[in-house]
Computed example of a mutant assay.
Amino acid sequence: MKNSLWVHAALFLVSLIYAANYSISKDVMPRYIGPYGIVVLRIVGAAVVFELLRRRFAGEAIVGRADNVRAILCGISGIGVNQLLFFGGLNLTTPINASLIQTIAPVVVLLASVVLLGDRITLRRAGGILLAGTGAALIILGRGSTPAATGPDVTLGNIMILLNATFFGVYLVLVMPLMRKYHAFTVLARIFLVGAVIAVPFGWQQVQAADYASFPPLIWVAIAYMVIMLTIVAYLLNNWALKYASPALLGAYIYLQPALAVLIAVSLDKDTLTWGKALQAALIFSGVFLVSRKPKEKTVIGEEVPLEPVQD
């Protein structure tokens, strides 16, 4: 029971950290530093920390051509391209839009498992994919709730968030064999190193262009939050909780993150919740529920795909 409470606490804290980021990031970018500059600070900082942890606690390296290629693909899909798309998209769209669109990551995990692992889709899950896809499409193509949330830039931002969720879904499928074979710090150190190699060329100019002397204390706190809490602490807590949490529990926390993001964004006056967005959220949640629900034994065609909460 005690361990179960710690698992719930860890998963809740991870959801809260990710949910708050949607609003906190909007205070920093693009006024103080560009979105790709934030990505560089975040990935490079995490790469250094995870490499130190690998040397201290793991002391191993990824070996073999197949595993090294897989690690590079994970660094591209789960860290480098994934983060550039997320912060670039969040810079253009609204916190609520971004949090709702990212909720379809479990759907992408299922589709990626079909393509990469040869799994099959049941009729119920096909219906879930349709519902979630419809909800995401309505958000991407629909009008925003405020004048600042309309126009081609917001549509582009929504599409980038969708691509971010897609790349992360592919990453979850690719990284599973590595996590089972190597220490978590070994895998994280490698994939963040790959991600840094990808991100630095895109964001280094924004890192250099920022006027750090003019940053108010709260902006430094927000940057520290994104580098330390969002990347390092959240990933470590999530990785620990995944050892004990069931897929059903993980599925429940998938819904908590956007709910918290909406509450935080609305309370801080960063976004507005409308009936239209509530309907779109209901479509996505219903679709994800159908996709995440474990099939009955007699209806199982392929293997069950483990689901994990969305990570930025």
Rank of each mutant, 00 (worst) to 15 (best):
A148V: 04
M229E: 10
T272D: 05
A126Y: 08
L237S: 02
Q311W: 08
L172C: 13
G64Q: 02
V233N: 03
I140M: 08
I38K: 01
D312Q: 15
V154S: 00
L279V: 11
L279N: 11
I301W: 10
T274K: 03
L85C: 15
I79E: 02
F168W: 13
F87W: 01
Q280D: 14
I139S: 02
T299S: 14
C74D: 08
L100F: 11
K270W: 02
M226S: 10
I198R: 02
Y18E: 06
F192P: 01
W240V: 06
A61E: 12
V310L: 14
S267C: 09
V170R: 00
Y253H: 12
V39G: 00
A20L: 13
R143V: 06
L123G: 10
N3V: 05
L123R: 14
R120D: 12
V40D: 00
V154L: 00
M29N: 04
A66C: 09
V115W: 11
A278R: 04
T155M: 09
Y18C: 13
W6M: 07
R54S: 00
V109F: 04
V28S: 02
M176Y: 10
N164I: 05
P217W: 14
D27S: 09
N238Y: 08
V109G: 13
V107K: 04
A126E: 09
L242M: 12
K2W: 05
V288E: 01
V44H: 04
H8W: 05
L5E: 13
